[in-house]
Amino acid sequence: MDLLFDPLFRLPFFAGLVAATVAAVIGLYLRLRAEWLAALGFAHVAGAGGVAGLLLGATPLLAALGASALAVAVKGALQRTGNDVYAWLILFGWATMMVGASFSHHAKMLGDTLLEGQLYFAGPPELWATLAVAGATALLLPLLSRRLLRQRLFPGHDAANGLRAWPVTVGFDLLAAATIAVSALVMGVMAAFALVFMPAWVAFGVAGGWRRAVAWTAGLAGGVYTGAYVAAMAADLPFAPVLVGLAALLAPLRLLRRFQAGAA
């Protein structure tokens, strides 16, 4: 338990907490767009980019972000929404990552890190990357939120008024890709997916409105992350599987909807 308060672990804890909260809020909007599989899609592409970058002598973090941005460009060019593009990205990213990892020991270590998560080894580059995506999300998401909701409920309204859809779509995709890539590099692919999927799923079921849903996702993600961090440290367990397990245990919270419905 002493490790919990060791200054060495403050930076990884803080980087992970920020990444977890931002990923969960992004997950809410991905669910709105029926694109919750994006977490696994972008995470696998980021992994493939990181491994490819290592093999080519580039910084894995920057290569992962670059690969994610490339995936956004491909998705934008295809002009497709929904989960099918992300399913393809999972397959392509996983295959590229695993084949690439077989070429060198360091690439294999990076591939393992991405799959299993190595939060405790997060350093200043990961912290700055996390803060950068958190800052961009805090700045841009409030501007995009109304347009993203309107695209879902009033399709065509913005286009009829001369407002182009692509800056909103591509802007949000870039935010999502960068957030998920950084989250996957810090905590691992499955942990990033758990944080994107579970809090938003619960919030969609029980929150009393959109603003409350944002608060639900951020609160649940922060709680699950902190709980997993403490539990993993205290019991000397691997962080990512503990986080994924705790996130999965959020599912019964959706039953609150039945009580709400009964009270209404």
Binding site: L32, L149, R152, L153, F154, P155, G156, H157, A160, N161, A203, F204, G205, V206, A207, G208, G209, W210, R211, R212, A213
Partner: peptide
């Protein structure tokens, strides 16, 4: 222009209030 498209939202799970 104010546009109301035909059945864009069919009532799937969505935490959005009327005032929102």
């Amino acid at each position: 222009i104010a546009c109301q498209a035909q059945t864009p939202y069919q009532g799937g799970e969505l935490p959005l209030r009327g005032d929102e």
